[in-house]
Structures are given as structure tokens and as C-alpha cells.
Design a protein around this nucleic acid. Structure first.
Lengths: 130, 130
DNA sequence: CTGGATCCTCGGCGATACTG
DNA sequence: CAGTATCGCCGAGGATCCAG
């Protein structure tokens, strides 16, 4: 490969100087993180497991359908676990896995960025809209 | 618990313990970063300015319409500059601003994460789909 | 309570045609 | 060459109903 592709992660992934699999996966992850509910769900599980209805209640605005879908997606990727208890009525608990937690760290950096630059961006927008 | 809420950016932003403005803006930024073209455009400008058609050619799959839209969006936020030269035929150059470049840093962390954990996630998926 | 399946709407995006 | 406006399609996602 080219010499510096290893040093800056942006080069290989975004510019295409790497395996198609990696590019695809990275795009997929960015899309995930950028979608409406993934992060909210993950954040809700950060301090401990929660049940389905519990999440549905706590997360304002999410629909039944999207919660299911988001949970399945995260579960499939090994970001969270689903534990069904054989009771009536059924009880299901979702919990973040260690892998799921590792994602929170790089995300924090991005969130930090947005907090730091919010006003600067807002100023640019006002200027542009004038 | 409560004491470390200030140190972990995830708490205020995602969990809602902060100003609505900040939450909204953070969501907006995550959506931006997660959309199909923003990062690709930014990456293309990383090594220097480029013209409209140049970008259109280099970025495989992007439509005329989406390139315009993506560029306007980034320009409005002060992430890039648009310079039109009074010539015939017209020439317009787009260039990343310092603000735009600062965004690349936290993004690299996320991209790094996806590279590191790609195979692990893939394994989970295979397992789940079985 | 959990979660699948179905229907239906709405908005994003590509294609295209048109201005400066 | 660069950019806007219009149209039409397609799919994401909400509402709802059914099942275990």
C-alpha cells in the first residue's frame, strides 16, 4: 500500500485507499451512529439493563417499531444482549456489552466537538442566511 | 454517578441533562457525519481546494444535486469556503476552512474504532444470522 | 409484555431541463 | 461551468393489528 495510509485513518477509509470491506463497514457505522435512535438507546443502557417497555417509555418519540428494529440491529452486531425470562407476562432485558461500551469513547470526542463549536457554527449560519 | 456527569460528554448530550440547543445541535452533527456524502466531500478537500466539476468527477456515485446541496450545507456552517472567479466559463473553488479541519480529528477516532472492531462485529453477525 | 407483519404516508434523492 | 427548479420514484418509518 502507500506509505502513510496507516497513519491517518481518514485516508484509507474515506478516500478509498483500502479494502472495500473496511470502507463499507466504516460507512455503515457512521450511518448507524448518525441515525435517529441508536445513540439514544445505547445511552439509555449505559447505566444498566432495561426492559423493552421501559425503553419505550423513557425514550421520547420513538415508535414501537423503531425501538424493536434498533435493538435487533445492535444485538446482531454484538453491541447489546437480549435476555428473555420464561415468565408470564414475558420479561426481556437488554444490556450493553463491553463491545457496545467501547463505541462510546470515540463518540464522546465527536460530541465534545459539537459542544465546543456549536456557537461558532451558529454564527456562520446567521452570517450565511443574511 | 452524578459526580462524573460533567466529565463524560455522553451524559449531558444524549441523556438530556443539558440545554435543548446543545442536544439538537449534537444530533444534527451526528446526522451530518452519518449522511452519505458529507464526509466524502470533506475528505476530497482535505489536501487542497477543488472545483465543482472536479468533485463531481472524483466522487463516484454522487449526483449533481446532492453535491450542490452538501457543499451549501458545509459552506453555511463555515466548514468550507466558496470562491467564485469572474471568468468565462465561470470557475468556482471550494476549500476546507480551519473549522472544517478540526472536525476531522474526532472523526478519525470513530473510523479507527470501526477498523479495529470490524471483524469482531462481523463474527457477531454471522453468529446471529445462523 | 414483547415483537412480528401489514399498510400507508411523506420526504429524500436522482434525473432532467433550464438560466447566467 | 456552476447552479436552480421541477417531477417522480422509492424506501424509511409511524400506526395499527395480530400472535405467543
Amino acid at each position: 500500500m502507500t506509505q502513510d495510509t496507516a497513519t491517518n485513518p481518514l485516508d484509507p477509509v474515506i478516500l478509498g485507499h483500502c479494502a472495500a470491506e473496511e470502507r463499507t463497514f466504516t460507512r455503515e457505522m457512521l450511518t448507524r451512529v448518525g441515525d435517529r435512535w441508536t445513540l439514544v438507546v445505547v445511552a439509555q443502557l449505559r447505566d444498566g439493563p432495561a426492559r423493552f417497555t421501559e425503553l419505550l417509555t423513557r425514550i421520547e418519540g420513538i415508535s414501537h417499531r423503531m425501538l424493536t428494529q434498533t435493538l435487533r440491529c445492535l444485538q446482531r452486531d454484538g453491541m447489546l444482549t437480549r435476555t428473555a425470562y420464561a415468565e408470564v407476562p414475558p420479561r426481556v432485558e437488554y444490556a450493553l456489552t463491553p463491545l457496545g461500551r467501547t463505541l462510546l469513547e470515540p463518540l464522546a470526542a465527536l460530541i465534545q466537538w459539537s459542544n465546543t463549536h456549536r456557537e461558532e457554527v451558529a454564527a456562520h449560519r446567521d452570517d450565511f442566511d443574511r
